[in-house]
Amino acid sequence: MRGQGIWLRGISGLGMAFLYLPIIVLVVFSFNASRLSATWQGFSWHWYGVLWHDEALLAAAVNSLWVAVLSTSLVVLLGVPAAMGLERLRGRGRQALDTIFLLPLVLPEVMMGVALLLFFVMIQWPLSLATVVVGHAAFNLPVVIVMVRARLQKLDPRLEEAAHDLGASAWQTFYRVTWPLVRPAVLGAALLAFTISLDDFIVTFFVAGPGATTLPLKVYSMIKSGLSPEINALSSVLVLSSMGLVGLSLAFQRR
């Protein structure tokens, strides 16, 4: 038993190291005073200063935030009613719709990007930030639906009947009973969708028009023109804010 315990701990330790060591290295080197990324020359906030004054980079960050806010709002507005509708559906139609709604979760993102690009070209919608918003909403919708439905499934269906029996209309039932009970799951799902949107590269790469550069696209283009420790600083900021958002999302889920 004891031997087994040590082995298990060793293996999970290796796994954790594999996952998190690169990130730790990244964060540590963002404080490197050296111009070259590979050698340590003492602690410095220098690259964070450079980052703060990089106009192009800040513009990309603002773009990313806009896209994340708008696409998240869109998926919440579409996803919550969709989840409630699916939950209420019975019989064969439900399974079919289930599959249709959840398929994008397992679809390779490259395919998703190509498909969206072809679609926008077909309907002659010029590529822009707007197409990025729609693209992100497309892959985040199933995420919201899955998370909200998980919560709905745990609710006693008698609760809505009880509200109805006590004189509440359909709207009053939703407002006073259903919504307060699913709200934590909706907030959690929204934060997760926000994070995924903020970090997305592949779909964005396909559907972003000229001038519609988001943060991940900007980072990619910066790497092509030489590795600057500024990218380390930027990545550290992204990693920490993503982790914070995911943590917040988990906290809402647990409520």
Partner: peptide, 13 residues
């Protein structure tokens, strides 16, 4: 009419 449910169906929040 008002129904007392078997599971009580009290609003948990």
């Amino acid at each position: 009419v008002n129904l007392v449910f078997q599971s009580y169906a009290l609003f948990p929040h």
